[in-house]
Structure formats: structure tokens, C-alpha cells
Write a protein that binds this DNA or RNA. Structure first.
Length: 948
RNA sequence: GGGGGUGUAGCUCAAUGGCAGAGCAGGCGCCUUAUAAGCGUCAGACCCAGGUUCAAUUCCCGGCAUCCCUACCA
């Protein structure tokens, strides 16, 4: 008779499909979580737990997410989920940064396209459009973030533009006003003539730029030493347009200068034979060449210090069209930053156009001229140049200088130059009145430095980086000449120029903002805020806008400390952003918080690198190497993107591209199949099958020890916020320890043993344990797939049923068994020797499947000892196994790497069991089932189909 | 211009002053009872040039590449 033995074996059975179809499946899980009220359930089970508060650094609400956003938010989510599963309450409130230039710029573009003048639009109307623009992108980005699987209170995010936030931000600035650290100063700041506003450090980008350079004579009027009488001091500058703002020249005390007489010039040279010039000795040759001077006679050599007291004439003094404007003295001053690297060793000083220049001018009582207006043109009071645009007039300025006999030479220099982050146009330094927060007045710098020392930085190098920036940074320019933001809510006394410091006035302002938003500042009569104690006519109302970095720097105040979110508290456990935020959000939050609360708003700071293209280059549209998160999700799914994040070392720059994404998808498949194997072989698992650890075979206890080891790695990874090593280990565990070893060996028992067999029950007990642990371990990373697997086994659609509401399972200490691990390491060496030999036998056509083999193994005694009592045929998946005595024959297969093992592979004797495919002599001995082995005959007799 | 990070197999990551490991991908093969799966096996790398050392991928110096930060080289 012919029996269908295949129907009597227990093949894996599960609804968990091999093919994931993540792009379709993930959105369904998102719906499932929404329907079952996941966030509410999470909050409920987390009540009373220790809090873990990752405070979200707000992305800017314009445009779709890019891959950097995805990295940042996924990483935050992984950390939140691991902390939650460690048993904490990881409540996450996402936020958005809404004010500021980029949005304003977009709205302005709209006006420009319609050929409308935005300055003609009422400011409140303009601000309304900005607000709507931000709202639109918040909605878009929210959906994109949710699609990444990011867990959080998406129904109650924070934004910097709610009325409450605007009121709080104004109130925070008020604290700096009241304690005296906010002041109005006039000094050169980075200025964008295109956007017509001052810019902060974080808004500046550096690009290559070619500048026109000029050498200019400053004739000596009053000589400090006889050596320079009748000579001209020569300066060099890359910004000829600053010449009208020149008020001094600077030398280095220790630099050697020479006075030379020009004795020979090239045809086109502007130098004149016989004239006397002063330059640094070290630069004489270079200067002569660039100015066409072929021959000079050195009249004197002296140290720069000798120039002290020298006064020069501006080259345009007495210019016919200047009406005496340039008839001031130009003193020669000592400056330690004068060098002999380039130029002439003499620095031209324009106090309105440079930080160093300004300081030097202030120290020497030199007036700081205002020569350039907000749009980059010279003021009307600047003769000759009035109305010229500084970007376009370098050559014209040179011509004027030439006409006045001041120009000695011209050239060009390619160098890195500051540009606006928004318009990408070059910036200028321009002297304007701006509002500053002093780093020194209230000891802000020292407080911030101390706070840095008390903060944990991951990686640790971030600490020095931030410290260096804080230690050296100038006062914080907080005013912008813009419209979209929180205004600088200050009144200045017209007579004294002093800002009004009155808490009652500030309170009236913030009260109004709470009700009407910051628009109230522009829409109200000043008297509303000034109240009865002051006369509005005596005060100037400031209309500048507050730097958006102050907004985001205040999020800790209006979200953590004083927001409507009951479960938040101050300070945050962690801030986590890209490493560029050392100069951005980490920085501004630190200053804001130290200025108002005396400490950092965070306990720890974690930074990640930037996302590069596959070749390590920066992503750019022009190179065509941009990877959009939306595309990866559409093609592969968000879990693949999440694997990419945790499988990367994000402490440095990380790469992504087609091949890398494909690799993550391959890794995903292996993990998914591991879950599928578990689910398939756990079909119908009953509690009554469970076997105690003490009753398990060594191999099962070895798996439990591996779980113990993995658990330790997991907890370390969570503590270090460093997941790549653990994830790699997890993947290797699934691929090598489980799939290629444990699962492969135990397939026989799972498929063929009778259901009540001790071994099969022990295996299923371990599979159940593995399922519990693996789903939990994978949950923070593969948040969709882990849930899918969990729900496959626990399908109740209740709000409390989610893998993400679990904690990492505890691992009993009794599972640890280091001696067993060492022993089995040796056993696997032996096994490798056998599989290697099988491969040779296979190539020689001695065997096909390994079950056709009977290895004869020559090995030292320690291998025999260590495997005593174990079924080595079972472990090697052969049908028989024999330790052979004596010397191995010469043609035996020898294992490499020192293990003194030799293997001769023979064909197993006997017939192939039709059911389990082992080749055994006993096949045929059972009268009822003559084509199967004894184990299988017994199993068939006791066969009961398993429940699904 | 200055400072810093990185540079190990096609990819993602290890380790190490003394034969450089893993996983994935790739080649070859087996199985067809995890099947758009599974198993085995093979091949494959220390950016370049000096120096210290018995010995350098590792330490030092220089260069190159790349990324980040920083600076009005006036």
C-alpha cells in the first residue's frame, strides 16, 4: 500500500506571508494603530513610570521631507521606542519651527511673480499668508513623518507660531530685557542686501567667490619717523567698495616694513618712478610684481611699531566732487591681526564693515561711518558713490581711486566668502543698529560653559565642539529687519535711547499675544501696552523681528515647562539632531535656557552625521544622486528605511543609494523569514507542551544562553544610543545561529517527531521564547513588521494588544551558561569540518543531500569528550556519524585552521526513509510501514493533525 | 586660510604593534519537507608615500580623497 507520508509531517503553517508588500501593508498598520487608539493606550500603561523625554528639535515647516529628516525622526523614534520598552514612559511631542526668512521669502516670491510690491501689503495680511503657508507644510510633513512609523502625539504637536508660543517667546525675551543683557548696539553685522536684513551665524553659508582686489596709496601726512616722510603707505583689500568707509590703516608692531623708491616700472604700471612707498618687507617682491614695479631702491627698513603716530590722507581727500567728505585724518594704528601672508602687510580699516575694524576703531575713538544702506547702495550723503550698489561697483571705485592718483594695482582673488543661506547671495558687513544679547553682561558665557560641562554628549566630541563655539562667539544678534516672526517687543525712550524695562508693560504685551498672537504688536496702539504710566509719544516702538533661533531656542520653555502637555516636564532627557545643530538649536537653546534658568534645557545631547550619496559625495540635484525617503517607502517600505538607519554608524556621516537600500531589503528578508519560520512551526502551540529548562537538551539551552547574551547587547545598545552593533549581531543571530544552525538541525524534530515527543516539545518551547524575544527586540527597529508578526500570533484587535506596548522580556539568570557556550563553539568547529567534507563529497558525486552521508571523523580526544552523549549525526544533518580510530587516510578531507580534524565521507548504509529521508538500516523493519524508519512509523501511528 | 572626522572586501560594519573578522551581495554546488525560501562552499580588502620598530593596517610625519565646522586673507 502507498501511504501519503508527507501529509503526516508537520510543515510550517502560518498566515504570515513570505512576501512583505510593505508599501501596502504599512499604511494598514498605521490605520490599525489609529483605530485601536495606540497613543492613548501607551499613555495609560506608562502612567507612573520613569519619564524619558526626548524633546523634538522642530523641523522648518516648508517643503517635503528629505532623507535627513527621515534619518533624524527615525532615530528619535528608535530611541523613544527602546526607552519605552525598557519600561519608561517615552512621551514624544513633535514640533515645527514656523517663523522666519525662508517662509517669508516664499511668500515674497509669490508677490514678485504677480508683480506686486510686498512692501505695499499690510504687515498683518502678509503675516497671515506666512502663517497659512506654514500650516500647510505642517500637515504635509506630519503625514510624511507618520508614514515613517514615528510614534508620538501627532494630534497635539507644538509649533512656534501658536499664540501661546508667541506670547511665551516674547516673555522670554522680556527676561533678557529686564536683566539688562538685551541691548541695542551699533556695529557691523553680517548683512544680506538681498533680503535686507541682518543675519546670524547660523544663517550664513560659505561659498567660493571671486573678489576684485586693489592696492591703494595712502600718502603720509604726518610722519612718525623720518624714514616715511614723503612716502605713501600701501594697503591691499578684497573689498574695494569699502574704501569710502576707510578711516584708518593698521600695521603689525613686529612686522618689518620697508620704504622703497620706485626706480623702474612696466609700461602699464600705475606706479610712478621716483615715488616712495611703504610696504611689508616680506611682501615687497610680490607686491612689486602685481603692481608692475620692476625695480626699487630700499631707503629704509624698520619695525611696524615705528609707525605709531603716523597720519595719512585718504586717497580721495580733496576730490573735486567730494565736497571735503574725505578730508579726515587716516591714522596708522597697531593691530595684532595684520600679517604678511598676502597684500602689503598694511590693513585698510573700515570700521563700518568689519568686526576687527570696528573694535580697532572703537579703541581709538574713530567715528564709525554709515556709508551703505540696507539694500547695498551707498547713502546719499556719500559723495561720488551715492546710489552705487556695492556688488557692482568694485571696478568703478577702482577707477575713481585711479583718477585721484590712489590706485597702484588691481587683481582678483578667489576665496571662500559668506553668503546668505536663503538667497545664496554674498553678504556684506554693514554697520547698523541691532539688538544684541550680551554674552558677558550677566555672565551668560560662563553659565553656558558650565552647563556644557554638566551635560552628557553622545558622541563625546560634541562637548568640545559646542564649548569652543560658546567660548568664542560674539554677542547674539537677535534682531532682524523682517516681518514674519515674533517682534522684539521693546519700547525705546526717544530722549535717552534706553529701552523701557517695566514688567507690567511686558505682561500687557504677553497677555495680548496670548489672545491675539504676535500680530497684536503691529495691530495695536502702543498705548495699549505702555499703559497709563507712560506717554506713547516719548517712546519709539521697535518693529524688528526676533531671530527665529530665539524662537526655537525657547521651545523648552513653552513646550516642556509651560505648555498644555501634562506629561511633559523640564528639562528634557535628550536633544537629538544633526551635528550642524551645534551652532543651531543646541546652541540657541543652551544660551536661552542659561540666560533665563541658569542651566541647559537638556540632560544629554546626541548628534548624528549627515546623509551622503552612495559615493560619499554630498547629495545634489545636479549630480542626480538624491535619494528621497518617499521613493524608498514607495518601492520598499518604511521598515527598510528604518533598517538603514539602525544599520548605519550615524555618529559619522552615513551613505544611502540604490545598492545600499537594496542591501537593507535583503537583510529585511532574512529577518522576516526568521519570524515566519517561528510562526509556522509554532502553529497550534499549547501551554501544555512547555518543557522546563532543566529538561531541555543542551542545544536548546545553548539557544537560551544566546538569548541571554543578546539581551545584554540590547541593553547596552539602548544605554549608548548605539544600535548598529546590536542590529548587526541580531541579524547574524537570525542568519547564522538560528537559520543555518539551530533551525536547520531542528527541522527534523519539528517536522517528523510525534507531537508529544520530549524533544519536539522542548524545541517548540524554545521557539516560543524566541518569538517573544525577537518580536520585542525587532519592535523598535522594524516597527511595522514586528507588529505584523505579533498580531499574526495574537490577533486580538484591542487597544492594549501591540508589540509596542510590551517591555523587553526579562531573561532569567539561569539561562546564562558560559561553559556551555564555549563547549558548543568547539562542537561547531567540528561541524564545520564535516560540512566542508560533505561539500567535497558532493562535488565528487558521492552524495547529494547531506542525509545520504555517513561521515567518519578522525579527531583528537577533546572533540570526542566534548561531544559525549550528543547525537552528532543529528547535529551534522547526516544519517550516521562515526568517530574513527587510528590515522586518517591520506585522501581524507582535512579541516583548515589548525583544528586537527580529518573526515572521510561514506554513503550511509540502508534505505531512505520515505518520511524523514534519513538513510537507515532499520528502514523496512516495520511491517506496517515498510518504507519508513522506526521513529517515523511510531509517529504515523500516533499522528494527530495539529490545530491550525 | 584654520580646526576636526573619516578612509579596511562590491555594500554595511569589526578587530589588531606579530597569519585582518563577520553579515549581506557575487561565483559554484546541494535540496525541493521554510520554496519568489533553505543549506553548503569558494573567491574577495587594510587610500598613497616616508619614518619609528625585529615587526605597522594599527604609532609618527607628509600627501590624496571626502565630509563637517570655522574665518570679512584686510
Amino acid at each position: 500500500m502507498s501511504v501519503d507520508y508527507k501529509s503526516t509531517i508537520f510543515l510550517p503553517k502560518t498566515d504570515f506571508p513570505m512576501k512583505a508588500g510593505l508599501p501596502e501593508r504599512e499604511p494598514k498598520l498605521l490605520e490599525h494603530w489609529a483605530e485601536t487608539g495606540f497613543e492613548k493606550a501607551r499613555a495609560e500603561i506608562s502612567q507612573g513610570r520613569e519619564k524619558f523625554l526626548l524633546h523634538d528639535g522642530p523641523p522648518y515647516a516648508n517643503g517635503h521631507l528629505h532623507i535627513g529628516h527621515a534619518l533624524n525622526k527615525i532615530l528619535k523614534d528608535v530611541i523613544n521606542r527602546t526607552q519605552q520598552m525598557l519600561g519608561k514612559d517615552a512621551y514624544y511631542v513633535p514640533g515645527w519651527d514656523c517663523h522666519g526668512l525662508p517662509i517669508e521669502w516664499k511668500i515674497e516670491e509669490k508677490y514678485r511673480e504677480k508683480k506686486l510690491d510686498k512692501d505695499a501689503v499690510p504687515i498683518v495680511e502678509f503675516r497671515k499668508e506666512c502663517r497659512e503657508f506654514a500650516e500647510h507644510w505642517i500637515d504635509v510633513q506630519r503625514e510624511e513623518f507618520k508614514r515613517l512609523g514615528v510614534m508620538g502625539d501627532w494630534d497635539h504637536p507644538y509649533t512656534t507660531m501658536t499664540y501661546a508660543a508667541e506670547a511665551k517667546i516674547a516673555g522670554e525675551l522680556g527676561k533678557f530685557l529686564m536683566d539688562g543683557s538685551l541691548y541695542r548696539g551699533s556695529k557691523p553685522v553680517m548683512w544680506s542686501p538681498v533680503e535686507k536684513t541682518a543675519l546670524a551665524e547660523a544663517e550664513v553659508e560659505y561659498y567660493d567667490h571671486t573678489s576684485t582686489t586693489v592696492f591703494v596709496r595712502f600718502p603720509v601726512e604726518t610722519a612718525s619717523v623720518p624714514e616715511i616722510e614723503g612716502a605713501a603707505i600701501v594697503i591691499w583689500t578684497t573689498t574695494p567698495w569699502t574704501m569710502p568707509g576707510n578711516r584708518a590703516v593698521a600695521y603689525g608692531d613686529k612686522i618689518d616694513y620697508v620704504t622703497v623708491e620706485v626706480t623702474g616700472v612696466a609700461d602699464e604700471s600705475l606706479a610712478v618712478v621716483g615715488e616712495k612707498l611703504v610696504v611689508a618687507e616680506a611682501l615687497l617682491a610680490d607686491f612689486s610684481e602685481k603692481c608692475g614695479i620692476t625695480e626699487t631702491k630700499t631707503l629704509a627698513i624698520f619695525k611696524g611699531a615705528n609707525l605709531k603716530g603716523t597720519v595719512c590722507r585718504h586717497p580721495l581727500r580733496g576730490h573735486a566732487d567730494a565736497d571735503g567728505y574725505f578730508d579726515f585724518d587716516v591714522p596708522a594704528l597697531s593691530a595684532d591681526y595684520a600679517t604678511t601672508e598676502e597684500g602689503t602687510g598694511i590693513v585698510h580699516i573700515a570700521p563700518g564693515h568689519g568686526a576687527d575694524d570696528w573694535v580697532l576703531g572703537m579703541q581709538n575713538g574713530i567715528e564709525v561711518p554709515h556709508t551703505v544702506s540696507e539694500d547695498g547702495t551707498y547713502f546719499d550723503h556719500v559723495p561720488i558713490f551715492k546710489g552705487w550698489h556695492v556688488y557692482k561697483c568694485n571696478k568703478d571705485v577702482a577707477e575713481v581711486l585711479k583718477g585721484a592718483g590712489g590706485l597702484l594695482g588691481m587683481g582678483s582673488l578667489r576665496h571662500r566668502y559668506p553668503h546668505s543661506w536663503r538667497s545664496k547671495k554674498p553678504l556684506i558687513f554693514r554697520n547698523t543698529a541691532q539688538w544684541f544679547i550680551s554674552m558677558e553682561e550677566t555672565g551668560l558665557r560662563d553659565k553656558a560653559l558650565k552647563a556644557i560641562d554638566e551635560t552628557r554628549f553622545v558622541p563625546a566630541s560634541g562637548q568640545n565642539r559646542l564649548r569652543g563655539m560658546i567660548a568664542e562667539r560674539p554677542d547674539w544678534v537677535v534682531s532682524r529687519q523682517r516681518a514674519w516672526g515674533v517682534p522684539i517687543t521693546v519700547f525705546v525712550n526717544k530722549e535717552t535711547g534706553e529701552p523701557l524695562r517695566d514688567q507690567a508693560v511686558l505682561d500687557r504685551i504677553t497677555d495680548a499675544f496670548k489672545e491675539e498672537g504676535a500680530d497684536a504688536w503691529f495691530a495695536s496702539d502702543p498705548g495699549r501696552f505702555l499703559g497709563p504710566d507712560y506717554n506713547a509719544d516719548d517712546y519709539e516702538q521697535v518693529t524688528d523681528i526676533l531671530d527665529v533661533w530665539f524662537d526655537s531656542g525657547s521651545t523648552h520653555a513653552f513646550v516642556l515647562e509651560d505648555g498644555p502637555w501634562e506629561n511633559l516636564s523640564w528639562p528634557a532627557s535628550l536633544y537629538l539632531e544633526g551635528s550642524d545643530q551645534h551652532r543651531g538649536w543646541f546652541h540657541s537653546s543652551l544660551l536661552e535656557s542659561c540666560g533665563t534658568r541658569g542651566r541647559a534645557p537638556y540632560e544629554a545631547v546626541l548628534t548624528h552625521g549627515f546623509v551622503m550619496a552612495e559615493d560619499g559625495q554630498k547629495m545634489s540635484k545636479s549630480l542626480g544622486n538624491v535619494v528621497a525617503p518617499q521613493d524608498v517607502i514607495k518601492q520598499y517600505g518604511a521598515d527598510i528605511l528604518r533598517i538603514w538607519v539602525v544599520n548605519s554608524d550615524y555618529s559619522e556621516d552615513l551613505r544611502i543609494g540604490p545598492e545600499i537600500v537594496k542591501q537593507q531589503a535583503d537583510i529585511y528578508r532574512r529577518l522576516r523569514n526568521t519570524l515566519r519560520y517561528l510562526l509556522g512551526n509554532l502553529a497550534g502551540f499549547e501551554e501544555s507542551e512547555r518543557v522546563s529548562v532543566a529538561d531541555m537538551p543542551e542545544l536548546e539551552r545553548w539557544v537560551l544562553n544566546r538569548i541571554f547574551e543578546m539581551d545584554a547587547s540590547l541593553r547596552k545598545a539602548c544605554d549608548d544610543f548605539d544600535f548598529q552593533p546590536f542590529f548587526a549581531e541580531l541579524h547574524t543571530f537570525c542568519a547564522v545561529d538560528l537559520s543555518a544552525f539551530y533551525f536547520d538541525i531542528r527541522k527534523d524534530a519539528l517536522y517528523c517527531d510525534r507531537p508529544d515527543g520530549d524533544l519536539r516539545r522542548a524545541v517548540r518551547t524554545v521557539l516560543d521564547t524566541l518569538f517573544d524575544h525577537l518580536t520585542a527586540w525587532l519592535a523598535p527597529f522594524l516597527c511595522f513588521t514586528a507588529e505584523e508578526a505579533w498580531l499574526t500570533r495574537h490577533p486580538e484587535a484591542t487597544s492594549g494588544n501591540s508589540v509596542h506596548l510590551r517591555t523587553f522580556p526579562d531573561v532569567p539568570a539561569e539561562w546564562a551558561d558560559a561553559a556551555l557556550a564555549e563547549k558548543w563553539s568547539k562542537i561547531r568547529t567540528l561541524r564545520r569540518a564535516v560540512t566542508g567534507a560533505l561539500e567535497v563529497a558532493r562535488a565528487n558525486k558521492v552524495i547529494g543531500a547531506s542525509l545520504q552521508a555517513h561521515p567518519q571523523v578522525f579527531a583528537p580526544a577533546d572533540y570526542r569528550d566534548v561531544t559525549k552523549g550528543l547525537d552528532l549525526a543529528e547535529l551534522c544533518i547526516t544519517s550516521d556519524f562515526t568517530f574513527a580510530d587510528g590515522d586518517a587516510p591520506a585522501d581524507a578531507h582535512r579541516a583548515e585552521e589548525g583544528a586537527d580534524i580529518a573526515v572521510v565521507v561514506e554513503k550511509a548504509s540502508g534505505e531512505k526513509c520515505e518520511r524523514c529521508w534519513k538513510v537507515l538500516d532499520e528502514v523496512g523493519s516495520d511491517a506496517d510501514h515498510p518504507t519508513v524508519c522506526n521513529r517515523c512509523a511510531d509517529a504515523v501511528r500516533h499522528h494527530t493533525p495539529q490545530a491550525a
